[in-house]
Design a protein around this nucleic acid. Structure first.
Lengths: 147, 147
DNA sequence: CCGAATCCCCAGCAATTTACTATGAATTAC
DNA sequence: GTAATTCATAGTAAATTGCTGGGGATTCGG
């Protein structure tokens, strides 16, 4: 029950692009350097984020990535789903109705997974990229205090 | 971001033992048959649950497993932690203070993981084994309706 | 139009984890 | 004593993770 590096690095990359890319597009190299991540690996993650419509890319010299759309309308859930796939903690749980699990009929654990999933979704969908950007800026400005 | 079969099968096994083991101890074979799981694999899972103090075992003929302690005081969180280890979605997140992550100082994603973790913990700690047992019994009796 | 800086795509691969299976010993009821 | 159990440890095939590498396509600046 862990997020992989895809989710972890990718979220950091998104925040980085959002903070650094308000004017010019942000090249992978710059993200890699600031976040201390592999360029090649970041390439893949940004590819996923692009396919999900969360960033746009500008090719060629002076190119790079920028956030696609409104910071306030991109949630952490969107980002993590793009990188990790559906966040469902298990495959059964009635999300796909047909018999993944023989015992489904009298299997109460299904409801457990459902509840876990709901609370997870609610949490990640409620946090927006905009919040994270603002918080990052305050931290960098020194006006942020550990909560 | 998925639970492994350890968590999924193990939780089902716990419910099974709780429901079937009110009088006599429940042998692995019986759990395996009812839940359609491998005996050998279940052996391992029950070993973990025992080490965590959630079940007790009676060896020898007529032996098997029983829940250790009060159903109302065993939470799904206890069970999943015994099987999956800590549920933390990532390694950083300030749960272990020292520098797992270079960027920690200005890394806002830490707070994201913290919030996810809190909501997950709250959910799993709130569901008790007792609830699951009661729900299972109603389902088996036919007095349970899909919600 | 050239060359450097970019993104883009796909293949490969070592290490780790997962989900078991196998073997055999120790214990206990009858 | 024998059959039914738990217990402990080891092995292992398949999948997943976390990258690395090669080579191409695109674009800007001069």
């Amino acid at each position: 029950m862990k997020f992989s590096t895809k989710g972890r690095y990718g979220l950091r990359a998104m925040v980085d692009v959002a903070v650094a890319g308000e004017e010019a597009p942000v090249p992978i190299q710059a993200i890699a350097k600031r976040q201390d991540l592999s360029e090649k690996y970041l390439e893949q993650l940004l590819g996923m984020l692009k396919k999900a419509g969360l960033v746009k890319s500008i090719r060629g010299n002076q190119g790079g990535y920028q956030i696609e759309g409104d910071l306030a309308e991109i949630s952490v859930g969107d980002i993590l789903r793009a990188l990790e796939g559906e966040l469902l903690p298990v495959d059964c749980a009635g999300f796909e109705e047909d018999g993944a699990c023989k015992a489904a009929k009298s299997c109460v654990t299904k409801y457990v997974w459902k509840r876990i999933n709901e609370s997870l979704e609610e949490t990640v969908n409620r946090i927006t990229l905009r919040e994270l950007v603002e918080q990052t800026k305050s931290m960098q400005a020194g006006t942020w205090e550990e909560e």
